[in-house]
Amino acid sequence: MLNKKIKNRSLAFTLFFLLSIITIFFSLKVLDDNVLYFLSPTEINDKENINFNKPIRIGGMVKKNSIILNNNEIKFVVTDLKNEIIVSYRGTVPNLFAEGKGVVAEGLLQDKKFFIAKRILAKHDENYMPPKD
């Protein structure tokens, strides 16, 4: 029952669909760095020619026992279990900011191991459960 018109339309559609997939795939590839919301300490470590004047975001886990509170300043270590970056920040942190939990920091990289944050965001995982008491 497939007549010629339907065949032509199917062909045109499939072609268009494949083309759009390829176009979107490549534009995402080009945008790669911008699609990533944050870079992990390892990605920072491996990256060459970092622009230290451009604000970036780094993310990872807050290392256990690394939070140091000092007046207004909070210092902690962001880790991805391979590399670490020390983050310094002045201001209030979100409620969910805690040791062993995910964090995203926005600010300027001083060198590959030291980061001054303008803003701290908490990243939480996909696990939901009632509190254990």
Partner: peptide, 12 residues
């Protein structure tokens, strides 16, 4: 807002 600390983020 209460969990991440922001209303909006331009992530993927």
């Amino acid at each position: 807002q209460p969990t991440w600390g922001t209303f909006w983020a331009w992530d993927a």
